[in-house]
Amino acid sequence: MAKPFRSTRRGITGALEPGEARLLGALLGDVIALLEPETGPSEDPLAALVGMSGTDADAAAPDDSAVRRLLPDAVRDDDDEALSFRRLTERSLREQKIGALRSSALMIESSPMSLNDEQARYLAQALNDVRLVLADRLSIETEADAERLHEVADAKDVDDVDSYLALVYNFVTWLQESLVQAMLKASRLER
């Protein structure tokens, strides 16, 4: 079992078991694949350069509910306004997220990990995105739904795909909580 993250003089440290690192690496890869924009050859190079989505057609609210949660509307109750904002910002948001997910995939290959503040932040963001996608696949819509999943805490509780996903979700939740606690502790010591 992974060791909880700790705040030390050498930064934030943590260690995953090889199987856990492989699993997490696959999950990070899945989220990257969800976020990678489908870039056509007709992409306007100037628009791409300034991080604007190329054409009107490719900036629609995502069909996949998990992607919609990763890239939510920035304006509520006004679809036109939300869409025009999405056209200006979505491409660069996707790229930022992919950047954090890719760096995290590299970080978790080392055991033990020793992370600086920026790396720890990227990893916390990436773990959060993984949890958002898993939660969507598990249809976690309310806090009661989330509570129910906590019961799946051990491999012996797993008897189908959903309970396996729940176990994975709980593991990533535990990992993120331990990382954030270590980061909060580190920031208290700095002040």
Partner: peptide, 10 residues
């Protein structure tokens, strides 16, 4: 229901 309270504070 997903984001951790600790993470949101952070």
């Amino acid at each position: 229901p997903v984001n951790l309270m600790s993470y949101v504070s952070f």
